[in-house]
Amino acid sequence: MLKDITLGQFFPGKSILHKADPRMKIILTLLYIVAVFMSSSIVSYIVTVAFTVILAVISRISVRVILKGLKPLLFIMLFTAFFNIFWTKGESEPLFAYGIIKIYKEGIIFAVLMIVRVACVLTGSSVILTYTTSPIALTDGLERLLSPLKKIKLPVHEFSMMMTIALRFIPTLIEETDKIMNAQKARGADFSSGGLIKRTKALLPVLIPLFASSFRRAGELATAMECRCYRGDKGRTRMTQLKYKPVDLLLLLIMVAYGAGVVLSNIYLGNLIVL
């Protein structure tokens, strides 16, 4: 049950996207998100959808996994689309009118484009970054990208170490929660029936042991790190040195081409298909 959370989960593989440098992938993701949000004409939307599909295909992440990642946000997408339909005013005659409720053609188009945009951003960014980058590589890349900020005394390394540890312990915590829930279920605990108060109370036998073991684990980890002489950033060397490879340049060029495509089609082909 708890293992179903896939958003932000790493799937090992051997695709181009898996091999690319994490720093480059973070940059690519930012470029990609900007480009998607700049899309404003039908043609640029088509380009965006096509590009996202291509990214998903070359990442070799299964369609099932991608759809499963979108599912938790389906509600939010439908919710915003719903409001867009009713709140957007158009210039032409409303398609449907009942009292103060008026639905315009623009509203529907806007709502659909909104869903497409959000779905693309989610799919694209998880395919470029989260599904294809291990959490360790991800925080490592982030630390390197932000390292210029160390000059103004921002504890970049400490933040990224905290993030690495947090990410590292998410699966452990999930597993632990699962284990404790099973142990309490074996003693007849019931998590799935009764009202809100009863259900919240039923979680106590899970939360208390979970907190207790989290504190224990934090203490043990701190001791283990001290034992290996961890003293923060200063003088720390790395086992894996990040290096840009030709693949990274290729991906960057492709991404720039896509961005340029979006901008150009906004400018020159914006009126090709009139909304």
Binding site: I180, N182, A183, Q184, A186, P205, I208
Partner: peptide, 13 residues
């Protein structure tokens, strides 16, 4: 069918 898990001491609350 009562089940005692491995390291059951961590389930005490």
């Amino acid at each position: 069918c009562g089940l005692v898990f491995q390291y059951p001491e961590y389930q005490l609350f």
